[in-house]
Design a protein around this nucleic acid. Structure first.
Ligand code: MN
Ligand code: MN
Ligand code: ZN
Ligand code: ZN
Lengths: 146, 146
DNA sequence: CTGCCCTCCGCGAATATTCGCAATTGTACG
DNA sequence: CGTACAATTGCGAATATTCGCGGAGGGCAG
């Protein structure tokens, strides 16, 4: 869980403003946890006592939060989902296109990839959180038995 | 460039049908080369003597071709783009979110990641072609001089 | 070659996401 | 605390992408 002070500082960086909308979207995503769609977040906030927020504002707030790397968008086959980036618990997803089963991947593997890219190219790859599509062992075996 | 016979065989696999629409989309993408948007492909085919093709059909054909791994969809920040998968020239992209500069990445690094994932989890990761977002060395240095 | 069945296509409607613009409202400054 | 100014929001319209459905036609049994 990112430090609150750190979050507000980032939200104010680069001429950006700390608005209640951005704070609410950030809070909603942190509180809800996991992968959430834009619609889910919008409805979550519609249930709050504050003034309702336009759907397009939720989209824009998420875009901003992504730019600050406080939030990550993941495409796991279905519709786009967003998640609060917890730097203390990095993880990635392996999604089987055959059966849909989903499991987490050891973050060390991608951390190493990031280091190698950095060493070879000088490029700092943002590999915080994403989904890798493929085929699980079970489906692969099933496919091989033709 | 995939073997023609191989392509038609794949298009017929699993009860799927070999239709002129799918063949035209595949041919257009191979001929055009590079990363192409749905709209570009649709217009390309609108200029052909054959009967015009519905836009939704182009979307569906690309979805099918992706399932067969003949085509890959890449999200490099802008709108979604598709490309014919040339297994003889695997490559990936590094895209800088600061300045937009884009360079290719040594495919060996991701080939190795795939092997490790396979060894550790038994999962066959499809890492044919995609974009990795991040920050180039130049932008990183500029950001550091605050 | 013919007929039948089930997948695909065209089309228009439903969703999802992005934009343009005028009205608001954070922020820096005095 | 009041002003000035640019960033941001709300809203509706513009795009982008996906669906549902009835008709067309690929592919296989006969
Ligand atoms: Mn996750
Ligand atoms: Mn490419
Ligand atoms: Zn599977
Ligand atoms: Zn850069």
């Amino acid at each position: 869980m990112s430090c609150e002070a750190d979050t507000t500082a980032l939200l104010r960086s680069g001429g950006r403003r700390l608005t209640p909308q951005r704070q609410r979207v950030a809070a909603a995503l942190q509180h809800a946890g996991g992968h959430r769609t834009v619609e889910e977040l919008h409805e979550l906030m519609a249930g709050q006592p504050d003034t309702p927020m336009a759907l397009s504002t939720v989209y824009r707030a998420l875009t901003t939060l992504k730019e600050l790397r406080l939030v990550s968008e993941v495409d796991a086959g279905g519709r786009a989902a967003f998640t609060w980036v917890d730097h203390s618990r990095p993880h990635h997803h392996l999604v089987c296109l055959g059966c849909g089963v989903e499991r987490d991947l050891d973050p060390a593997l991608l951390r190493q990839l990031g280091s190698e890219i950095r060493a070879v190219t000088g490029f700092d790859a943002f590999l915080d959180h994403f989904a890798i599509m493929g085929e699980c062992a079970r489906c692969r075996q099933a496919a091989a038995q033709t």
